[in-house]
Amino acid sequence: MKRSLKLSLVLVASLLVLGITSCKKKLKDADIQSAIEKVLTADADMKGTMVTVKDGVVTLSGVCKDEACKTKCEEAVKKIEGVSSIVNNCTVAPPEVVVPPVADALGQAIADAVKDFPSVKTQLTDGVLTLTGEIEKASLQKLMMGLNALKSMGLKKIESNGLTRK
């Protein structure tokens, strides 16, 4: 009887200990997570990163703007207390393709405007259009009207000293 009481006490005690530790662990994951989130949200680069924590193992996910940013997230998380290891599942966003649509549209519009004057050559640099080659005097006004209208598309100046008027 005495023995079995002792045994059950031990059992209860061990259960309690187990219960407490498992409870403590759960809390800790949540604490780690909020500590990480605090660090990440404070930085504009890392803001978008998502975090999950299980048994001290941190999983990072989301889209980073570049490889450096991905590493930065990992380094920052590593320093936080209670983090045992990191699984970095962040993906790196494809580099932004910088397309200068205005310049392209202007280039095309210039090509359209001079299309009927094949002996006229064009060169566009920083919004300044240089005309060379030759043109019939009778067509000059029509050409210039078409090109001057492209001011609305960003054309700043037309240099036509090198254009021969026939």
Binding site: K137, L140, Q141, M144, N148, A149, K151, S152, L155, K156, K157, I158, E159, S160, N161, R165
Partner: peptide
């Protein structure tokens, strides 16, 4: 314009009349 700047050669005016 063609009278004031013969042959529109000076490159100092953008006449954008729509």
């Amino acid at each position: 314009y063609g009278k004031l700047d013969p042959d529109y050669a000076a490159g100092d005016l953008m006449l954008n009349i729509n």
